[in-house]
Amino acid sequence: MSFELPGFDLDSFVRATLAEDLGEGGDITSAAVIPAEARFSGVMDSRDAIVVAGLGIAEAFFRALDPEVGIEMLVADGQRVPAGTDLMRLEGSARAMLTAERSALNTVQHLSGIATMTRAYVDKIVGTGATLLDTRKTIPGLRRLEKYATSMGGATNHRMGLWDAAMIKDNHVAVAGGVGAAVARAKAAGIASIIVEVDRVDQIEPALAAGATHLLLDNMDAPTLRGAVTLVGGRVPTEASGGVRLDTIRALAETGVTYVSVGRLTQSAPAADIGLDFTEMPA
């Protein structure tokens, strides 16, 4: 299995993560306790019902320390599995496996936790016609991976950073002197995709008149959202955002918005309970 993700340098990520764990002294426990020639077999399994994400990255950690390690993938990223499912089988150098174990597990636990929470939100809005979006509320340095995990859970990635679309928020509006003026400046700068955050219905027409291509309807309740969507009348995509929870998302999605964005997918997802058990192989 080879993991590739546009804009993400897997080799650098693996090197940096292992270097953080190994420090200058290396894995002193395994070096002292485990014979250099010892071999282990192991099984990575999930103790929770999860949506899987990150197995290819876990493989890269093990291969970085034991290029000859034998790995059998038993499930695929994006797959929903019940508790007790075996995810991966390994066979190779005992020292290498023990040294790579925590980095591999941390990654799969974190990404699978995000994918699992994301799928729960996606399931809640099935049939509404709305699409779930993630946000930029990610751990610094992990955005590409965390957004990969949301996509494995069934969400669509929102903008990746500050560079791929303009998003005009309240602070931009305050400095620019109004919604219309802020949008006009973005359009004059030649920006094609202009997302505008509005928290009042009376901001919608000025934003559209100035050239907004997407409206983010911020912290509006369902009745207000429904009215806003009617006012927009399909001229641009609409997005419900702000404080969206699992118990509120369906009502918001049913207002007719194009998208619902949820920051907690990457900001608050708990790690999945995934373990890795080793058995010593005969010499």
Rank of each mutant, 00 (worst) to 15 (best):
T85E: 13
D86G: 14
L87Y: 13
E91Y: 05
G92K: 11
G92R: 13
S93I: 05
A94L: 14
R95A: 15
A96W: 14
R102E: 06
L105G: 09
N106S: 12
V108P: 05
S112G: 05
G113P: 04
I114Q: 00
A115T: 05
T116L: 03
T116W: 08
M117H: 07
T118A: 05
R119V: 00
R119D: 08
A120T: 03
A120E: 13
A120R: 14
D123H: 06
I125M: 10
V126L: 10
G129L: 11
A130Q: 08
T131S: 11
L133C: 06
R136P: 02
P140S: 04
G141M: 07
R144G: 02
R144N: 04
K147C: 06
Y148K: 02
Y148I: 07
G154V: 07
G154K: 10
G154S: 06
A155N: 05
N157T: 10
H158E: 02
R159A: 10
R159L: 07
G161N: 14
W163G: 00
D164K: 13
D164S: 11
A165E: 08
I168T: 13
D170S: 09
D170H: 10
N171I: 00
N171Y: 12
H172R: 14
V173G: 01
V173I: 15
A174V: 02
V175M: 13
V175R: 04
A176P: 02
A176Q: 10
G177R: 11
V179I: 15
G180S: 14
G180P: 00
A181M: 09
A182K: 04
A182M: 05
V183W: 07
V183M: 12
A186Q: 10
A186H: 01
K187T: 01
A188F: 13
A188C: 08
S193K: 15
I194F: 10
I195S: 03
I195N: 03
I195R: 10
V198R: 02
V198K: 02
R200T: 13
R200Q: 13
